[in-house]
Amino acid sequence: MSVIDQMSVVVTAVKQVAPMIKEFTLEPLEGQLTPFSPGAHVVVTMAGTESTYRNAYSLMSDPQDNSQYRIAVRLQETSRGGSVYMHQQVEVGTQLKISPPSNLFAPQWMAKKHVLFAGGVGITPFLSYLPALQRQQVPFELHYMYRSQQTGAYRIELTESLADRCHCYDADQGNRCDVSAVMSAQPLGTHFYICGPESLIEAVQTTADEMGIPPSAIHWEAFAGAKPGQPFVVELSGRGVELDVAADSSLLEALEAADIKIPNLCRAGVCGQCVCDVAGGEVEHRDSYLSDTEKQSGRVIMPCVSRAAGERLVLDI
């Protein structure tokens, strides 16, 4: 697999779109950006003083607009630094490196109808869906759940432009979405998309299962990237090197800091690109890519999210 080139962009606008969410407009330093498909994301590289962070953010601008990209970043309380960096260090004029767009969450173009469930900042990939779905004139519904004291960006614009196709639920006002009522009312050919916290994804999956809705009509993107854990030491058996992985760094980031390039697309344990062979030590699997059998074998790890279960891990690199 080829190592993907980085593109240089400059921040041309920063907007506070909800109490915890900032929107960033990125323009190319030279030339044009590539158009992308709805649901695509880019990985933003942030060179912090202590370590380099790389986080994946959904593109929320119109996929056909190649003059700029827009992303929205929610400040994460338990962040390992990436979102704090974006919120505190990045301002108009800051230059950033981003990966070209890749997509693990594209709409199903054969669908007769699309039902979108967004939780909080999970609204972002759907913002790039909406222009495409409107151009295609296919029926859709957006169910947007948020807490207005933290999130809920763009709800006024969305309600205005989508009218009764947009349903808002503000948990801070006690409004909840009845997922099973929404799902039971849908016709054949409906596809369901979820972007939001694990609990929302599970709620939709469980409801679909109970109702007998086919699993391949359910699509989701978990936006949670790597979470911190215990520090550990990784030994690279092929190179005779040992590296320290700090509590708030992912294994992938530690490898990258040592100039070891590992292919990666999602940095969230879903795409399968970053898989590495394990030669020793126990793994704490945190990905949703490997099968249970692969996880039990202890022979492979997804370093973007997973870590050592003990103090030491040996990778066959």
């Binding site: 007769k112 050919g189 086919p214 391949s216």
Partner: peptide, 10 residues
């Protein structure tokens, strides 16, 4: 059936 919107597992 696929044209009508059915998924393979249906």
């Amino acid at each position: 059936a696929r044209q009508a919107g059915m998924c393979p597992e249906q």
